[in-house]
Design a protein around this nucleic acid. Sequence first.
DNA 1: TTAAGTGCAAACACTTTGCAGCTCC
DNA 2: GGAGCTGCAAAGTGTTTGCACTTAA
Lengths: 144, 144
Amino acid sequence: MSSKQELSALLKKHKVSVTSARLAVFEALSRLGPCTFAELNHELSPSVNRASIYRTIKLFESLGVVHRLPMGWKYKLELSDLFNKHHHHISCAGCGQISVAKEDRQIERLILDITSGAGYEHLSHSLEITGLCAGCQSKGYRTA
Amino acid sequence: MSSKQELSALLKKHKVSVTSARLAVFEALSRLGPCTFAELNHELSPSVNRASIYRTIKLFESLGVVHRLPMGWKYKLELSDLFNKHHHHISCAGCGQISVAKEDRQIERLILDITSGAGYEHLSHSLEITGLCAGCQSKGYRTA
DNA sequence: TTAAGTGCAAACACTTTGCAGCTCC
DNA sequence: GGAGCTGCAAAGTGTTTGCACTTAA
């Protein structure tokens, strides 16, 4: 089953319409990977309206289809673990490029460990690592 | 040395003025703990202007005095590890309350491990855990 | 057919900026 | 005394909303 079909199934399951705008947003997100709203909007403009993209993103977030990655003052959007195996990001403070941290089963367990006993339920987590990529290091970019 | 004195020393070291507005913002942050901009503004109003708070927060961030914690669509501010031992947060998706995860030296090491070899430098990280606190569970709050 | 979704434009909230006056050093 | 900082008000962004029209079911 293609991920587009999975999305349709999920939308139907939640009794919301499968519309071309929603499919277009989903496709753009798959194509772009982690991206800002502006990038997404640029990709979809003018076929999908800004307001509709906002509404779709909000819907997708509430359905757990989309995730926000904090990026300093801003954020980026990406398809969530439902469509994209769970992973963590390393982002560059210089150029904003995002790479994916190598997988580590142990860290997932530890994160569960440290939260146990706090009385929380439905836990999820986001681990964001920031640094300077090789390129920006050689360009002499410096953090404040 | 009190943390207020540490702040003054840090400001002087960076050759920026030690002003009453900056001290006030710093004190409010210590008093409030993790808080939204609106809360901070409310605490400081009308003695410090909104614009000055923004400017001060920006300065403090660039000096590494203040951190932003991603909170869904918004963020909260808190004093950074310089004034506050390094730690991780668990926030409640229902009421927004933040608690501090129990410490774990191992997790810090693992985080360094998974990032090594990616060619990044000056690494820092933020681990945000989200769930439902006991209170919101009993109130029957449900995530979407 | 009709409830739900979309585009458009206007409203809204949050953040930044230019400038004149005030403070710190 | 002078550079740096603040308050104020106005300008930018980014995001949300009301409404008439269109589309999926």
